[in-house]
């Protein structure tokens, strides 16, 4: 058992989040997957903080959480307004940005 286990776990969680972003169409679920990716990064930060013997990593994780909270608020508001105009929360429906 070493700290590598945490890091590999974080990498796997990150990848699962990334794949989730790619395969899910519900904007809210996509958002949740992004949260998962952020969380896995937080785990990495905390692990490295412990390895290096400083709390700077924890502060980074703290800031990530704050930013994530702000991002969730704005992101969900955007999803709300998109839903209001398009009656859909599917990311595939907003596909006008193309050739």
């Amino acid at each position: 058992m070493s700290l590598t286990n945490y890091l590999v776990l974080a990498a796997i969680l990150f990848t699962i989040g990334a794949v989730g972003v790619l395969v899910r169409r519900n904007a809210i679920v996509v958002f949740m997957c992004i949260e998962l990716m952020l969380n896995s990064v937080n785990l990495t930060l905390v692990t490295f903080a412990r390895a290096s013997g400083t709390v700077d990593g924890q502060i980074m994780a703290f800031f990530v959480m704050v930013v994530a909270a702000a991002e969730v608020v704005v992101g969900l508001a955007i999803i709300m307004s998109i839903y209001r105009t398009r009656r859909s929360a599917s990311v595939d429906d907003a596909s006008l940005l193309k050739y």
Binding site: A18, R25, V91
Partner: peptide, 20 residues
């Protein structure tokens, strides 16, 4: 260019896939 333009499908998930 128009053939390459077809790759710009407008689907965010396709773009995200290329990012990955």
């Amino acid at each position: 260019s128009s053939r390459l333009g077809r790759a710009q499908t407008g689907f965010v998930r396709s773009y995200a896939l290329s990012m990955l």
